[in-house]
Amino acid sequence: MILSHEKKFICLKTRKVAGTSLEIVLSQLCGPRDILTLFGGRLNIVQEDEAQRLARSGRRAQNYEMPLSGYSLWQRLTGLPRRNPIRLYYEHMPAERLKDLTPPAVWSEYFKFSVIRNPFDFAVSNYHWYRKTGRTEQDFRSFLLGNDWAQTVNSRITEIDGEPVVDFMLRYEHLAEDLVTLSEHLNIDPALWSDFTGVRAKGSLRPKSSTTRDAFKDFPEGVAFVRDTCRTTFERYGYAPDPE
């Protein structure tokens, strides 16, 4: 998640949409007062991603911890802010939580955006992320049908009470053209996005052979499940409700 006072924008970071690569590029626009949250994931990958951000923008994660004034006197006396600082802002922060921490004028005036992905393709990519990070040992069918919350995780990041809060939603499948549109909204040089193709954040956890078509082949109940669970996403962003 990025909250930039420098360029007056808020980037809500959704999952499995090249969000870390996007944040690395966006960090080049940020100033010393802006909030850049820590990258998550396995330690070696986090270190690589932070190194890329530092090399490209000269910035690390910053201003995401609770300020000293937010701790009680007892907490300060016990050294808690130094030993175990509280992360006030974090990577996949829901819009509702961020809004609570943001001055009303900033929330209403800053340009808010995020990234969406075809629900069928997201389901497959998200599953492989859970498998490779050791969070599940289930097969795809069992994971999909048994964890409906996982399919709607991004909606909970970008919506409040079921309504999207973003001013612009980039499409994962059309990032090149949508990044140019975003540059117009942010009034920045569209050439900045040429850097995006050179960023390789987090690495691929999904086997190249694992296609969306194959994952849903002979799996009609899975197709119906995604259609039903993500009905609003299909309607709102124009995705065809078919894994083909």
Results as ranks from 00 to 15, higher is better:
residue 1 M to D: 01
residue 6 E to L: 13
residue 6 E to Q: 14
residue 6 E to F: 14
residue 6 E to H: 08
residue 9 F to I: 06
residue 21 S to R: 01
residue 26 L to N: 05
residue 29 L to F: 03
residue 30 C to A: 10
residue 30 C to D: 00
residue 34 D to Q: 09
residue 37 T to S: 00
residue 39 F to C: 04
residue 39 F to T: 04
residue 42 R to L: 05
residue 56 R to N: 07
residue 58 G to W: 08
residue 59 R to W: 02
residue 65 E to V: 14
residue 67 P to C: 14
residue 70 G to I: 03
residue 79 G to Y: 14
residue 80 L to M: 15
residue 81 P to Q: 12
residue 83 R to Q: 15
residue 87 R to P: 00
residue 92 H to A: 06
residue 93 M to F: 15
residue 99 K to G: 09
residue 100 D to N: 13
residue 106 V to K: 02
residue 107 W to E: 04
residue 119 P to N: 14
residue 119 P to V: 15
residue 124 V to N: 01
residue 125 S to Y: 12
residue 128 H to V: 09
residue 139 D to V: 12
residue 139 D to F: 10
residue 141 R to S: 07
residue 145 L to C: 10
residue 146 G to C: 02
residue 149 W to Q: 04
residue 150 A to F: 02
residue 152 T to N: 00
residue 155 S to E: 05
residue 157 I to Q: 09
residue 162 G to I: 07
residue 165 V to C: 11
residue 166 V to L: 07
residue 167 D to E: 06
residue 168 F to G: 02
residue 179 L to I: 01
residue 181 T to F: 05
residue 186 L to Y: 03
residue 189 D to H: 03
residue 192 L to A: 02
residue 193 W to Q: 02
residue 193 W to M: 03
residue 194 S to M: 03
residue 195 D to E: 10
residue 197 T to K: 08
residue 199 V to T: 08
residue 200 R to W: 01
residue 201 A to T: 09
residue 209 S to N: 05
residue 209 S to V: 09
residue 214 D to T: 04
residue 215 A to K: 01
residue 220 P to K: 13
residue 220 P to D: 13
residue 221 E to A: 15
residue 222 G to H: 02
residue 222 G to M: 09
residue 223 V to A: 06
residue 224 A to V: 11
residue 228 D to K: 15
residue 228 D to P: 04
residue 231 R to Y: 06
residue 238 G to K: 02
residue 239 Y to S: 07
residue 240 A to C: 10
residue 240 A to W: 05
